[in-house]
């Protein structure tokens, strides 16, 4: 199984690459969004700002959205999850629009949200099986899906409640960082990959 991390040029990808590894899998980094689609699993990693990341995927935005709609498995983490939506108040540019809705700021007196937060109303089978109950977040913005039935777990911060994860059959977006959520986080990634 070929796993490709789309590398928009910011952040630590070492822990995530390590968390994706396993028997019969190869993990590669790819900075060209079009080339990144030649893969079995696409990963949109989580560190950076919306505008530069949206600009990096712009040349292949439609192709990427179509590939995901046609069933290419994908994990989007934090900013990577936000890129699955239409647009963000954080910065200019268009997301993939795989999910309808915008990315907006968390309503809380303390931002960024940095630290371990609990997940509730968890319906995601892999989150449940991994027993991932407290996850590491580092964000100020969250996704507001037009259709809340795609949400498979929630978290709260300040006055706000927001999706911790969204899910379609073969696409999962998580607002927290599973690769920074210790053993249960890594288990979640492994279970998702094994389910494909």
């Amino acid at each position: 199984m070929q796993i490709t991390l789309f590398d928009y040029g910011a952040g630590n990808l070492h822990s995530l690459a390590k968390a994706l590894r396993g028997e019969g899998r190869t993990v590669r980094l790819e900075a060209d969004p079009r080339a990144a689609l030649a893969t079995d699993v696409l990963v949109l990693p989580g560190v950076g700002a919306f505008a530069p990341a949206a600009a990096a995927l712009a040349p292949a935005r439609d192709a990427m959205r179509d590939a995901l709609r046609d069933g290419l498995p994908c994990i989007g983490i934090c900013l990577g999850m936000q890129l699955m939506f239409e647009a963000s108040d954080e910065g200019a540019g268009e997301g993939l629009g795989l999910f309808s809705g915008r990315v907006t700021k968390i309503d809380a007196p303390q931002l960024p949200q940095i630290g371990w937060n609990t997940l509730d109303d968890v319906t995601d089978v892999d989150l449940r099986a991994a027993k991932l109950e407290t996850a590491y977040y580092a964000n100020s913005y969250v996704c507001r899906p037009a259709d809340s039935s795609v949400v498979s777990a929630w978290s709260s911060h300040g006055n706000d409640r927001f999706p911790a994860s969204v899910r379609t059959a073969r696409t999962v977006g998580v607002q927290f960082h599973p690769e920074k959520s210790s053993a249960p986080g890594v288990r979640f990634i492994q279970l998702f990959l094994e389910s494909l």
Binding site: S15, V47, E179, K180, S181, S182, A183
Partner: peptide
């Protein structure tokens, strides 16, 4: 980072925004 799955902060001797990028 290849063996750790909790957040890691590094500091000391960071002088420029390029250093921040290199550290990340």
């Amino acid at each position: 980072a290849e063996r750790l799955f909790i957040p890691l902060t590094i500091g000391g001797g960071i002088r420029t925004v390029e250093d921040i990028g290199l550290a990340l």
